[in-house]
Each structure stands twice: as C-alpha cells, then as structure tokens.
C-alpha cells in the first residue's frame, strides 16, 4: 500500500518532465530508429513515400563507408584525449578557485567568459594562436628552438591539425565543467572542513578524503556527460576548419570529420534515402556511446556513490 502510494507520488513528480520529453525527445528519437528500416524514404514529399523495408541495409551501408571509418577514428581520438584532460584540468581549477579568497570573483568571471564569447571570435582567436608564422604556440615552441609547426594552415597533416582541434575542444569544454564543479564544491557542507581543521588534517588528505568523495556525484556527472558530449563532437570541427572539415591542402576532404559531422551531412541531403543513412549512423553512435557509458558506470560503481 505504502509502496504503491510512493510510486504514484514519484510519477507525479516526474509527470511534467515526462510529458514534455515524450513529445519533444522520445517521440523524435523513436522516429529516428524507425527511419533506419526504410529504403528510399523521401520525407520531402507530403505523403512521405519510401520504397521498401530493410532490417540492416542502412547499417551495412554506413559501416562499409570509408568516410564513416574516418569519422569513427576521429571521434574516438577526440573522446579519449579531450575528455580526461579537460575533466582533470577543470577539477583542479575549480578546487584551486574554491580554496582562495582574494580575486576569487575575478577569476570566476574570467573562467565564465568562454560562455559568452561569440563563436566567430573564438575561431579568429584560435586561427591566431595556431598560425604558422606568428601564432602563440609556434612562438612558444620557438623558445625551445623548434621549427614552426603547421597546425591549421597549408601543409598541416592529420596529426598536427588534430592537435589543434583537441586544444580547441578542451578549451571549449572548460567553462562548463568549472562551473559545475564549483557549484558542486559549494554544495558540500562546510562542517566537514571545519571538522578537518580541528583535527589539523593535511590538505592533500582533506582533498582525497573529503572533497573528492563528496564531489563524486558531480565528477560522475561531468565524466558521463562529457564522454557523451565528446562522442557528439562536431561544432568544434566546424569552428576550427569550416565546412571543409579539414585544413587546406589535406586530402581526402573531410579528414577531420566526426560521426555527428557525418550524420549532419546526410540530414539535409534532399536525395531519397539519405535521412535513413543519417538515422542509421545516429543509432550506431547511440550504441557505441551506450556501451561505453555502461562500462564507465560499472567501473566507477565501486568508487562513486552514483
């Protein structure tokens, strides 16, 4: 009796969110799943005709596409390099910021600024940072006697342009993560720290024994959403390289395409059937992300009270 009542109550709490999500999230999601089973689907015609059903045809097409392999490879690199670095750096910044008193507000504002920076300005700034002749990075490398590296200009390779893209991606992710960690740190009851102070616990121990465990839900949140977000990377590539998705002179075209870039190139393709390819790629991305998230949750289960 009690349990049924609490069940009902929980669903009431969830009702507003569920209602909106069903219409604007779940329904389009299932629609996308459905599209993967169609051949020659033409959504431009008012009656939305298609030629036949297929179970795996669209998936086969995506999986055998060289461009998709390239997209998968790039996405995996972005995910496994940018996420760990940006999570660790932003955690350190947040903890440092939380531990100071003077200029705290100033720093906090500065770390918020990427959020309100116009995308075009970000593009201009990174073009400047990575310029071969006068860019900041190459000037820095010059101090160590290194020759200028071509990151985003003519002559850039997949490797060098990927480095630039990763820096851009990490930069782009910091502001949000810092904000979340700061909010999380502020949620921690000061009493724990007061107690630690009384016991004269060393700082590193406070960090390991109090801060990190109590922050663990936020760390889990950031890690999971960052990985999911990085699997969906695309805007950073556009921001860095524009529509060609590669630095000039690098063939094949789209050398730095990501899975979402691949999906996007099919979404507004007017040719019949293109949308099903996009949907199939989206489902493949979904499965990869899901499996990875499960592994992540399973691994972290012991350490995080998630």
């Amino acid at each position: 009796m009690l349990e049924r009542e609490s069940n009902l109550k929980a669903w009431l709490y969830l009702a507003p969110a569920l209602l909106l999500l069903s219409v604007f999230t779940f329904y389009p999601l299932f629609n996308s799943f459905y599209l993967t089973f169609l051949v020659g689907y033409n959504y431009l015609k008012p009656d939305k005709i298609f030629e036949a059903y297929t179970l795996v045809g669209n998936f086969k097409e995506v999986l055998s596409d060289k461009l998709f392999h390239q997209a998968l490879k790039n996405t995996v690199v972005i995910v496994f390099v940018s996420v760990p670095i940006s999570v660790i750096v932003s955690l350190l910044i947040a903890v440092a910021l939380n531990g100071i008193k003077k200029l705290q507000g100033t720093f906090q504002t500065i770390f918020f600024l990427p959020y309100v920076t116009n995308a075009i300005a970000v593009g201009m700034a990174f073009a400047f940072i990575f310029n071969t002749n006068y860019g900041l990075v190459n000037q820095f490398l010059g101090w160590f006697g290194m020759d200028p590296v071509k990151f985003v200009t003519l002559g850039a390779t997949w490797g060098t342009s990927m480095i630039a893209l990763l820096v851009y991606t990490i930069w782009g992710g910091l502001a949000f993560k810092i904000m979340v960690f700061l909010a999380g740190l502020q949620n921690i009851d000061k009493q724990y720290y007061d107690a630690a102070k009384v016991d004269a616990t060393p700082r590193s121990r406070v960090l390991r024994r109090i801060t990190i465990p109590l922050l663990s839900p936020m760390i889990a949140y950031i890690t999971i959403t960052s990985f999911i977000g990085a699997f969906k990377a695309y805007r950073t590539v556009i921001g860095m390289f524009g529509a060609s998705l590669a630095p000039p002179g690098l063939l094949p075209k789209d050398s730095l395409i990501t899975i979402v870039g691949y999906i996007y190139s099919y979404i507004y393709d007017t040719a019949p059937g293109a949308i099903s390819i996009a949907a199939a790629a989206a489902v493949i991305l979904f499965v990869i992300t899901l499996v990875f998230t499960f592994i992540q949750m399973w691994v972290s289960k012991k350490r995080v009270h998630f």
Binding site: F24, P28, N31, A279, L285
Partner: peptide, 20 residues
C-alpha cells in the same frame, strides 16, 4: 532511458519536432 536520449545528436530531433 533519460540518459540514453542524450546519446542521440540533437540534430536528429529537429526534423520530427518541426513536424510536431
């Protein structure tokens, strides 16, 4: 199930939501 909705790129939702 909620988490899973984050794993589909938002671009895929736009078409259906426009129709809705």
């Amino acid at each position: 199930g909620f988490l899973m909705t984050m794993m589909i790129p938002g671009e895929m939702f736009v078409i259906t939501n426009y129709l809705t």
